[in-house]
Design a binder for these strands. Structure first.
Length: 272
DNA sequence: GCGACAG
DNA sequence: ATCTTGTCGC
C-alpha cells in the first residue's frame, strides 16, 4: 500500500478515500477482548498556528498496552507541521501522517488499534480508523466522543441514546451508499452509541479494518471498564499532549536528518 | 442559499 | 481540536 500523500485539496482527498476504500477488509475473528496480546491507542494534539508566530504543529502518539492487564508495554510519538485543514469527513488527511509515523516507531506489534474518531460510520464509509487500517494493514476500530450527523433525514436529530446500563447500545444509522440510481434503500446500521458507564454520555463505536461492529463494541467495553473512554485512548491522549509540549519547548533541530519531521507538504488547500 | 459538521 | 472561568465531588 502506497504511503499516504497529502491531497492538494478536498476534492483530491475525497478521491483518495474512495480509492482506498476498495481495500477495506471485513470482520475477521481476531483475539477476543482480554486475550493475551497487545492493544494500541492512537491520538493527536495540535498547537495553534499564531499568525507569524509558531507554526501549526500536530503531535501524534501510539501507546501499546498489554491486552490482559492494560499495563503499558511501549509508546512512540511523532511531531510535524499540520498537513491539511480540518474538514468534517476528511480528518484522516490531517491526522494520519503523524499517527502512521508514531506507529512506525513502535518496537512491538500494535495488535488492535483503537482510534479516536470514526470507522465506517462516515459519509463515505471510510473514517480515519478505516483509512489507518488500510494504510497499515492493522486491525482497527473507531471510538468517537461526539455524534456525527449521518442521519437519514435533515432533522439534525441526534442518534437514539442507548439504555442506561453499562454495555447498553443503540444503532447508528446512515443513508445507503453506493445506491445505483435513486435506489434509496433503508438506512444502514454503521455503528453503535455505546454506554460504557452508567450515568455517563455514550461513546460512538464503529468498525474499522478487519474488525466488525460487535467485536469493536466488545473491545471498547473491555477497555473502558473504569472510565467513559477506552484506556488506550486516555493514554494516547496524554502521550500526544506531552509530545506536543516537548516539541514546543525544544523547537526543530538543525537540518541534519536526525529528528524526522513529517508531512512537509505545503499547499494544504481549502474546502469547496 | 443556509445550517450542520469526528478531531 | 484549542481557549477559558467557574463549580461540584472524591
Amino acid at each position: 500500500m502506497p504511503a499516504h500523500t497529502t491531497p492538494a485539496d478536498a476534492a483530491e482527498a475525497v478521491e483518495r478515500q474512495l480509492a482506498l476504500r476498495r481495500f477495506l477488509l471485513p470482520d475477521e475473528p481476531g483475539p477476543p477482548p482480554g486475550a493475551p496480546g497487545t492493544v494500541t491507542g492512537v491520538d493527536v494534539a495540535y498547537s495553534e498556528s499564531e499568525g507569524n508566530g509558531p507554526p501549526g504543529l500536530v503531535a501524534a502518539a501510539a501507546v501499546v498496552l498489554d491486552a490482559v492487564d492494560l499495563t503499558e508495554v511501549d509508546r512512540a510519538a511523532a511531531v510535524g507541521p499540520v498537513p491539511f485543514p480540518y474538514v468534517p469527513g476528511l480528518l484522516a488527511h490531517r491526522e494520519l501522517p503523524a499517527v502512521s509515523e508514531a506507529l512506525a516507531g513502535l518496537r512491538v506489534p500494535p495488535g488492535l488499534v483503537v482510534c479516536d474518531g470514526y470507522g465506517v460510520a462516515h459519509p463515505r464509509r471510510f473514517g480515519l480508523a478505516c483509512h489507518l487500517g488500510v494504510l497499515t494493514g492493522l486491525r482497527t476500530i473507531g471510538v468517537a466522543k461526539t455524534p456525527f450527523r449521518l442521519a437519514d433525514d435533515r432533522s439534525g436529530a441526534p442518534p437514539e441514546p442507548p439504555g442506561p446500563r453499562r454495555g447498553d447500545h443503540a444503532p447508528l444509522y446512515a443513508p445507503p451508499i453506493d445506491a445505483p440510481e435513486g435506489t434509496a434503500g433503508p438506512p444502514e446500521v454503521v455503528g453503535s452509541a455505546l454506554r460504557t458507564r452508567a450515568g455517563v454520555k455514550p461513546v460512538y463505536v464503529s468498525a474499522g479494518h478487519r474488525v466488525g461492529l460487535a467485536a469493536a463494541r466488545a473491545h471498547t467495553l473491555h477497555l473502558a471498564r473504569d472510565f467513559r473512554l477506552p484506556e488506550t485512548t486516555r493514554r494516547a491522549d496524554r502521550a500526544c499532549r506531552d509530545a506536543l509540549a516537548r516539541a514546543r519547548a525544544q523547537p526543530p533541530p538543525p537540518r541534519r536528518g536526525s529528528e524526522r519531521v513529517i508531512g512537509t507538504d505545503p499547499h494544504p488547500g481549502g474546502r469547496g
